[in-house]
Design a protein around this nucleic acid. Structure first.
Lengths: 255, 255
DNA sequence: GTCTATATGGGGATAGAC
DNA sequence: GTCTATCCCCATATAGAC
C-alpha cells in the first residue's frame, strides 16, 4: 500500500502555537494554488515557496505530488461528505417511514459545500472553486478522489431523491442529480464572473443567497413531471421497486 | 496584431482528395487530445504525432500553442454561436412584439451545442466535452476564448430570457442562466459517467434524450417564482425597464 | 525534519537545411 | 511547407549533508 517512507511526529516548534508543522503550511498553500491554477498548473516549487518550506518537504511529508493532492482534497471533502450523510440520515430518521422532505434532501447535499467553513467569504469562495475543480478536471488523480470520497454520497442521495420525488424513474432522478451538481459547480467555479456580469445584483460570496437561488430553481426542476418517451431505448425495467434505484453511481472508470 | 509569420496557401498534395493539408490534421488531432487530456495536458509532441505531422508544423501554421488552441476552439464555437443567435432572432421576430417562447429560447441555446454535427455520436460526445472544458478550465487562454466567442450570446440570451420570463428580476435571470450552463456542462463533461452509473437507463450519446431531459428540468426551474429577499444587499434598481437587463455578461476579468 | 544540490525528463519554441 | 536538430526552461523526484 502507498505508505510514506517516514511518518513525522507532531513536534512543536518554538515559533507558533497550534500550527503543528510545515505539513499544514504545505496543505494550505497547495489548496490556494490548486484552486487558482489547477492541480497541474500549481508547481511544487510555487507551493513550497508560498508555504515558506523547502521543495523536498513535499517528498518527506506526502511522498510525492499525488500524495499532496490526495491529502489536500481529503482534508476538505471528508468532513463535507460526512456532514451531508449525517444530515441525510437525520432527515430520513425524522420522516420515517415516510419519504424525506424534498427540499431538505437538496439542502443536505448543497449546504455543506456552499457554506463550508465559518471563515472569510474569500476562503469559502476558494474552497468552492477547489470543489468545482474536482468535478471539472479530467485527470486520473481527480477521478480517484471522486471515487474515494463520493461513493456513499453518490449512492445514498439518488436513492433519497427517488423516495422524495416518487413518480420519477431512477434514470430521470439520475439525470437531475447531475444537473444539480452541474449548477452547483458552475457557481463554485464562476461565482466571481456571475457577480461581475450582474453589476452587483448577484453576490456569490453570500452563502445564503447562493443556497436560496439554487434551491428554488432546482426544487422546481425536480418537481417537473417527466415526459416518458424521449426517443431513446426503453429501459429494461429490471426489478419491481420504483423507490429503490439500482446500482446507481459506480464511479468506476469509463469517462 | 498577432499574425503568423507566414500564411500557407491551400496547395493540393498528391495523397488525399479534399483534405487540404496538415493544418486540418493538426486541428483534428488537437481537438481530440484537448478533449481527452485538457489543453495543458496535451503536448504539442503528442498532437503532431497523432496528426502525422512534424513538431515544427504547429509553429508554421499557428505560430505557437496558443494560436493552435485559439484555432481549435474558434472553428467549433463560431458556427455554434452563430446558429444560436440565428435561432434566437427567428424566435423573436416570429413572436414580435410579444415575448419569445420560453422553451424556444432554452432550445435555441442548448440544441446547437448538444446536437452538434451529424457525424458519429462519439464525435458529438467529444465535442461536448471540449465545450464543457471551455467553461470548466480556468486558464487565461480559455477566458479569452469565452470573451471572444460569447459576448453576443452572453448578452442577448439573458435579455431574451428576461422577456420570456417576466416577473423575474435580472439578477435572478442571471443566476438561472448560469445554472443552465452548469447543467449543460456537467452532461458534456461527465456524460459517460452518467450513462455508466445509470446501468444503461440514461443515454447521453442520444442528443434528443439529453435535450429533452435538460429542457423539462430547466424550464420548470426558470418558471419557479423567486422569493424576493435572500439576505443579500438590495439591488440599486437602476433604470426602469424590467425587460432589459443592464450590462449583463462582461466576461472582462475577475474570477 | 530541513536543507542543498542534482539527476532526469519533458515541455515549447526556433534556426536552418531541404 | 516540411523536416532535423537543438536550445533552454521548468517540472518532479531523490540523495545525502546538516
Amino acid at each position: 500500500m502507498p505508505r510514506n517512507t517516514a511518518n513525522p511526529p507532531e513536534t512543536i516548534t518554538a515559533e507558533g502555537e497550534a500550527r503543528q508543522h510545515t505539513r499544514d503550511a504545505l496543505l494550505d498553500a497547495a489548496e490556494v494554488l490548486f484552486s487558482e491554477l489547477g492541480v497541474d498548473g500549481a508547481s511544487l516549487r510555487a507551493i513550497t515557496a508560498r508555504a515558506g518550506a523547502n521543495l523536498a518537504a513535499v517528498s518527506y511529508h506526502f511522498g510525492n505530488k499525488e500524495g499532496l493532492v490526495r491529502a489536500v482534497f481529503n482534508r476538505r471533502l471528508r468532513p463535507i461528505n460526512e456532514e451531508r450523510l449525517r444530515r441525510l440520515t437525520a432527515l430520513e430518521d425524522a420522516a420515517s417511514p415516510e419519504a424525506p422532505d424534498p427540499e431538505g434532501v437538496l439542502r443536505a447535499f448543497l449546504e455543506p459545500v456552499v457554506r463550508f467553513g465559518q471563515e472569510s467569504s474569500e476562503e469559502q469562495m476558494r474552497f468552492r472553486k477547489l470543489m468545482g475543480r474536482t468535478f471539472a478536471e479530467p485527470g486520473e488523480v481527480m477521478r480517484q478522489r471522486l471515487r474515494d470520497q463520493f461513493q456513499e454520497v453518490g449512492d445514498r442521495f439518488p436513492r433519497a431523491l427517488a423516495r422524495a420525488f416518487p413518480g420519477l424513474e431512477p434514470g430521470i432522478i439520475l439525470w437531475r442529480f447531475h444537473f444539480m451538481i452541474g449548477s452547483m459547480v458552475q457557481v463554485a467555479l464562476h461565482g466571481a464572473l456571475i457577480a461581475e456580469s450582474s453589476g452587483g445584483a448577484c453576490d456569490p460570496t453570500h452563502g445564503e443567497e447562493v443556497i436560496g437561488r439554487l434551491v428554488e430553481f432546482l426544487l422546481a426542476g425536480f418537481q417537473a413531471p417527466s415526459t416518458g418517451a424521449s426517443g431513446g431505448k426503453q429501459r429494461p425495467s429490471k426489478g419491481e421497486a420504483s423507490t429503490a434505484a439500482p446500482a446507481i453511481f459506480a464511479w468506476e472508470e469509463g469517462f
